[in-house]
């Protein structure tokens, strides 16, 4: 039990930030991202003894996070829409600075990508190794590289056009 707690604490410390970024990129809302991150780690805890070392812990946690995000969107009837984009701006209005505005714009741009692109790009931005992203997405590494190239280009374009507005 104590070992499990220690392992869980290590997994939480190593992965919580990335999972939070993934959830934030996916939902475009900080409160929802915190809820989803919590829910993800509760599921991690519940299933810790079922982990079979077939993949890395982080890959396994990412999969749980993605499934949790999808189930959450069902219950909350939320989508990354303009309404959510407004939430992103609101989340940054407490102490607005140029940098915060730029980050808000970045999340707004991510929210304009396709769902699978959002998942991939948040992992790329967090510097998750490519083989791990390919495993989470269930596609080949070669195909992933092509896809990442396309998404980077798309995100840069969306970001710059949003910045001009």
């Amino acid at each position: 039990m104590n070992n499990q707690r220690q392992l869980f604490q290590r997994l939480f410390e190593e992965n919580s930030k990335r999972v939070y970024h993934l959830c934030y990129g996916y939902t475009g809302d900080s409160d929802s991202a915190n809820d989803l991150m919590q829910e993800t780690f509760i599921k991690v805890w519940q299933n810790l003894d079922k982990f079979r070392n077939q993949s890395q812990f982080s890959t396994w946690i990412y999969r749980i996070a993605i499934n949790t995000c999808l189930s959450y969107l069902r219950t909350a009837k939320r989508r990354a829409t303009e309404e959510l984009n407004d939430n992103i701006i609101e989340n940054y209005t407490e102490e607005p600075s140029e940098k915060q505005e730029q980050i808000a714009l970045l999340y707004k741009s991510i929210a304009q990508l396709e769902e699978n692109e959002r998942i991939i790009i948040t992992m790329v931005l967090d510097e998750v190794p490519y083989p791990e992203i390919a495993e989470v997405a269930g596609i080949s590494e070669g195909n992933l590289r092509v896809k990442i190239h396309r998404i980077k280009h798309k995100l840069t374009e969306i970001y710059n056009s949003n910045e001009r507005v």
Binding site: H21, A33, I103
Partner: peptide, 12 residues
């Protein structure tokens, strides 16, 4: 953009 991401404030 990636630099911006790493300097972001939103933390869990």
């Amino acid at each position: 953009i990636q630099q911006l991401w790493h300097g972001q404030a939103p933390e869990p």
